[in-house]
Amino acid sequence: MEELAIDFEKGEGLVPAIIQDVDTKKVLMLGYMNEEALAKSTESGKVTFFSRTKDRLWTKGETSGNFLTIHDIQVDCDKDTLLIYVKPTGPVCHKGDDTCFADTNRSKTYFIDRLREIIKDRKNNPSDTSYTASLFNKGINKVAQKVGEEAVEIVIEAKDDNKELFMGEAADLLFHYLVLLEAKGYELDEVMDVLVQRHRK
């Protein structure tokens, strides 16, 4: 990871570090880091804090095995707070909860936004090896046709009890639906707006 410009002097050598799940965007916990803790974190790839009560460094998971593997680190505009995206291994809180705020951390729906970014990139920067780019290249009629085909296939699988096949078709339908939205130049957020308005009625 590249060197981060952090103002440790504001907090007398410590800065708060907000820990967030990279997949769900759920805030998991808050800790503090000094320069040494940050250096060890970036070197090891595991979140290491400075314990104000024990007056020493401690790597999250060093006793429980529930490590926080670093995906990315960002610095706020004042250079005195860290936002660390992680992949947690097991519960984060010492009480056994998913987060230190007693929240559950199960949803993976944030990945839809990442998938939307990938689909948009395939449209704007097509390659000969990309299936998604090939759909855009075939035009809106082909994209719409694929959504129809996948919709029929999930209906067929819904009548059986094979979860694996049903989930595969569900994933195919969702993917091609997102491709169709991008082909039309519409955003999923606009669909969400319609749902929100309906919910308010």
Rank of each mutant, 00 (worst) to 15 (best):
E3S: 14
L4A: 00
A5W: 00
A5Q: 07
I6M: 10
I6Q: 02
I6H: 01
D7M: 06
F8I: 07
K10Y: 12
G11Q: 07
E12I: 09
G13L: 01
G13M: 08
G13C: 04
G13S: 05
V15W: 05
A17M: 05
I18L: 14
I18W: 05
I18S: 04
I18D: 01
V22I: 14
G31N: 03
G31E: 03
Y32R: 06
Y32Q: 03
M33P: 06
N34F: 02
E35G: 09
E36L: 00
E36T: 02
L38G: 04
K40C: 00
S41M: 01
T42E: 09
K46I: 06
T48G: 04
R52Q: 04
K54A: 14
L57Q: 06
L57G: 07
T59Y: 10
T59W: 06
K60D: 05
S64W: 06
G65S: 03
N66P: 00
F67N: 09
I70V: 13
I73T: 08
I73R: 08
Q74W: 09
K79I: 12
D80A: 04
L82S: 03
Y85N: 12
K87W: 07
P91L: 10
V92A: 15
G96N: 14
G96E: 15
D97K: 14
D98F: 04
D98H: 13
D98L: 05
A102R: 14
A102K: 15
D103W: 10
D103E: 15
T104N: 15
N105P: 03
F111Q: 15
F111I: 11
F111A: 14
E117V: 06
I118L: 12
N124K: 13
N124G: 08
N124C: 02
N125C: 01
P126S: 08
S130A: 11
Y131F: 10
Y131D: 09
T132L: 15
F136M: 09
F136G: 06
K138E: 14
K142D: 11
A144D: 08
Q145N: 11
E149A: 03
E149I: 06
E150F: 00
A151M: 12
A151N: 14
I154W: 05
E157T: 10
E157W: 01
A158T: 12
A158C: 15
D160Q: 14
D161R: 13
D161Q: 13
K163P: 04
G168I: 01
A170L: 03
A170K: 07
A170P: 10
A171Q: 06
D172F: 01
F175C: 10
H176M: 01
V179N: 01
L180W: 03
L181S: 13
E182F: 00
A183C: 11
A183Q: 05
G185R: 06
Y186Q: 13
Y186N: 09
Y186I: 06
E187P: 02
D189Y: 12
D189W: 11
D189R: 12
E190H: 02
V191R: 01
M192T: 12
D193Y: 03
V194D: 13
V194Y: 00
H199G: 12
R200W: 00
